[in-house]
Design a protein around this nucleic acid. Structure first.
Lengths: 205, 205
DNA sequence: CCATGGTGGACAGCAGCACTATCCAATGTC
DNA sequence: GACATTGGATAGTGCTGCTGTCCACCATGG
C-alpha cells in the first residue's frame, strides 16, 4: 500500500500523514524504491489510533507521541508498566508536588500510592482548581467519589488482565493507555446522562 | 477596587482582564469617573472562576462564555435548568445525532433521556471514538460503567439539592455547571489513582 | 499646578498548535 | 517519453489565548 492508498484508507490527507511521519507518530513503510514505500494494515491501525487520540481523546501531538513511545517500549513488570502508562498520559498538574490532603485522603482509604504518581499529583491540582472555582469539595465527598472510581478501576483492571492473557503485555499496556484516554469521555458523558435521567425520574414522581 | 488592584488580587495581568472585559467574560466595574471604575469581590470571584474553568477545566473562551451566560440567565423549572446547563457545557460530539446503540443502552437501563440531550449524543461519539482507537466496548462493559456513573450522578444531585436549599436556583445552576466541569478532572484522576492502588494491592499478595 | 502614571478603549502582534500548501528532484508507471 | 507520485524540506494558514503598543483622558502626590 502506498502512502496515497493509506491516505484513502484512513481518510487522512497525504500531507497530514507526511506531517505525522515527520513528528514520529507514524513509522515509515518499508522502502520499495527511492520514491516509494509499502504501508500495511498496522499503519492503518496506527493512523486511526492517532486520529482517535487527537479528536476524541483531545490530547495534543506531544501527548500522542508520549503515548506511542510508551506503547512501543518493551515492558518488564506488571506494576511498573501501569506507572509508565500513567506517566505517558497527559494530565494537567502532574508535575506539581503531592498535596497533604491527597496523602491524607488516600491514606484514609488504605490505598498505597507512590508519592511520585502523576495522577495523585494531578488529583491535588484538580481539587484545588475546583475550590478556586467556588465548588465546596470536602473529604466526605472526595471519599464517596473515590470509592466509586475504585469500582470503575476494578472494571478497567479486568479488561487489562484479559488483554494480558490474550495478547500479552503489549496488548495490556495498550489497553491501559488507550482505555484510559478513550474511556474517560465515555464516563464523563455517562455521568451527565445519568444526571438527566435521575432528574427526569424525580420530576416523574 | 481599581482594575490594577483586581489584577493584583487575582494574579491576572491587567491586559488579560481587559481582554476578558472585551470578550464579555467579566462585567465592567461601576464607573467612578471617566477613567476609573470600581470593582468588587464579585469581580474577584468571577475572575477566579474564569481562570479555573480555562486552566483546570480545559474549556475554551467560547465555552466559558456559554457557561457564564447560562449562569447569568434566570431559570424556570428544576429539570429545564439541568438541560440548559448541559447544553452550555462544551463536549465534543454533542451536535451529532443520537446513535441507536445509545438509545438501546439507555432504554435497557430504564433511563428516560431526551433524544436531543447533548450528553447522550456525545456519549455515542465517545463510544465510536474508543472503538476506532481499537478499544473493545461492548454492551456489558458500558452498562457496568453506566451503573457506577449513576451513583456518581446521585452524589452530584445531592449537592445540587443542597445548593438549591441554601442558595436558591442560581446557586443550584452554578453547582451543576461548575460542579460538572471542575469535578470531571477529579474523577479522572481518582480513576487512575485507584488503578494504581488496585494494581499495587495485587502485587502485594 | 503640574508631572506622573493609571485608565478605558481600540487594535495589532505573538506564540503555540495542528495542519496545509508549495516546491523540488528523483522515480515509478503508463 | 510524458506525467503523476513519492520523500523531503520549508513556509504559510487559521485558530486560540493572550500580550504589547498606542492614545486621549484624568486622578493624585508633591
Amino acid at each position: 500500500m502506498r502512502i496515497s492508498e493509506l491516505a484513502e484508507a484512513t481518510g487522512v490527507p497525504v500531507h497530514t500523514l507526511k506531517y505525522y511521519l515527520r513528528e514520529g507518530l507514524l513509522q515509515s513503510g518499508v522502502a520499495t524504491g527511492r520514491t516509494s514505500a509499502d504501508y500495511g494494515t498496522e499503519h492503518v491501525d496506527r493512523v486511526r489510533l492517532v486520529r482517535a487520540l487527537i479528536e476524541v481523546g483531545g490530547i495534543g501531538i506531544a501527548g500522542v507521541h508520549a503515548i506511542l513511545t510508551a506503547l512501543d517500549t518493551p515492558i518488564t513488570s506488571q506494576h511498573s508498566f501501569l506507572g509508565a502508562a500513567h506517566a505517558a498520559l497527559p494530565m494537567t498538574g502532574m508535575d506539581e508536588p503531592l498535596t497533604d490532603e491527597v496523602v491524607g485522603l488516600l491514606g484514609g482509604l488504605g490505598w498505597a500510592v507512590d508519592p511520585a504518581s502523576p495522577p495523585a499529583r494531578a488529583l491535588g491540582v484538580a481539587i484545588e482548581g475546583a475550590r478556586r472555582a467556588g465548588v465546596l469539595v470536602d473529604r466526605e465527598r472526595l471519599q464517596a467519589y473515590a470509592v466509586l472510581m475504585r469500582e470503575v478501576a476494578l472494571l478497567d483492571i479486568v479488561k487489562v488482565d484479559e488483554a494480558m492473557a490474550t495478547g500479552g503485555p503489549g496488548a495490556a499496556l495498550r489497553m491501559v493507555v488507550i482505555g484510559n484516554v478513550m474511556i474517560d469521555p465515555v464516563l464523563i458523558a455517562l455521568r451527565r446522562v445519568a444526571q438527566e435521567a435521575a432528574s427526569a425520574a424525580r420530576e416523574q414522581e
